[in-house]
């Protein structure tokens, strides 16, 4: 097991009037090589949850394990953990600070203790992975467009060569093309390098398309954890939590309600199309 949370609770502003229980006895195991989607409404505890995975937050109660070791045990090397579990925050472009793109991306690998040349190699390959061309390497990160900044920031985490990549809403504020581009590249990275990906998103379409496991966070607890199909079949309960199923799931339900026996568990447009076509052809034969 790669990452394991055992009975983890986290309290903000403990022992004051402002005390909030952000995580409530959470148990979770992350297997290697998965693409995990995390959904939950704003303030449900998603961000707190992912910050426990690389030791940025210390659980008030409970334990966190990485590759079987308790990360809060004495003498555990947290800095090393953080290079293995890369975390890309929301609006990561706000963390850029160097004079040029390449040097900024080299920050992570250099902190890892790599030499200048090695760090440069890592940075170049990470920038290529996210699709930032060589002509931008020497420009100031502050002169890039929003989407490019975002990619440079993601490269900054990728360059540390993490085993797990956690992304907190990496597509917020991007146009549809930028969104597909970034998610597509992350998907490719996972296929090519076997990186485990954890994607926090508000877009049900995105998690349905990319994730093979879906975790729902609500009020600091995990009420649902399963394949996107399983989770989205509970769309009525999800709505009660301020979430929803992908649009296409609603279309499929409506089609079935009107007497067209399609597969209602389809949660991507491609699956839905297949199911509808199959039904149309089959239907014609029947008629």
């Amino acid at each position: 097991m790669l990452i394991e949370l055992k009975d983890v609770s986290y309290l903000y502003s403990r022992d004051t009037v402002y005390e909030v229980r952000a995580l409530d006895h959470v148990n979770l195991a992350v297997e290697e090589g998965r693409f995990i989607g995390v959904i939950g409404h704003t303030g449900s505890g998603k961000s707190t949850l992912i910050q426990h995975m690389n030791g940025l937050m210390k659980p008030t109660e409970g334990h966190v394990f990485f590759e079987g070791e308790d990360i809060w045990a004495e003498k555990y090397d947290l800095r090393k953990l953080r290079t293995s579990v890369g975390l890309v925050f929301q609006y990561p472009e706000n963390q850029l600070f160097e004079t040029d793109v390449l040097t900024d991306v080299m920050f992570g690998p250099k902190n890892k203790g790599l030499s200048e040349t090695e760090a440069r190699e890592r940075a170049v390959s990470a920038l290529k992975d996210v699709g930032v061309g060589e002509k931008h390497f020497k420009t100031s990160p502050f002169e890039l467009s929003g989407g490019q900044k975002r990619r440079v920031a993601i490269a900054g985490v990728l360059a540390m060569d993490p085993k797990v990549l956690i992304l907190d809403e990496p597509t917020a504020g991007l146009d549809p093309r930028g969104r597909d581009e970034i998610l597509g590249r992350i998907q490719r990275l996972r296929e090519e390098r076997g990186i485990t990906v954890i994607l926090v998103s508000h877009s049900m379409e995105d998690v349905a398309e990319y994730a093979d496991r879906l975790i729902v966070v609500n009020n600091g607890k995990i009420p649902y954890d399963g394949s996107p199909r399983e989770v989205f079949s509970r769309y009525e309960e999800l709505e009660g939590m301020g979430l929803a199923a992908p649009e296409i799931t609603y279309v499929m339900h409506e089609l079935r309600r009107r007497g067209f026996p399609v597969d209602v568990t389809a949660d991507t447009v491609a699956e839905a199309k297949e199911s509808i076509l199959k039904e149309l052809k089959g239907g014609r034969k029947r008629a």
């Binding site: 910050q51 690389n54 940025l56 800095r79 953080r82 290079t83 890369g86 975390l87 925050f89 990561p92 706000n94 963390q95 600070f97 920050f107 992570g108 902190n111 890892k112 900054g156 985490v157 540390m160």
Partner: peptide
């Protein structure tokens, strides 16, 4: 937030001598 993001990239805000620490604050 920024501090956490940089710590996630391996930044170190706690150790080192005075000059080192000031340099570490740049990110």
């Amino acid at each position: 937030k920024i501090m956490k993001a940089q710590i996630a990239r391996g930044a170190d805000f706690e150790s080192g001598n005075f000059i080192r620490r000031i340099k570490n604050m740049i990110p």
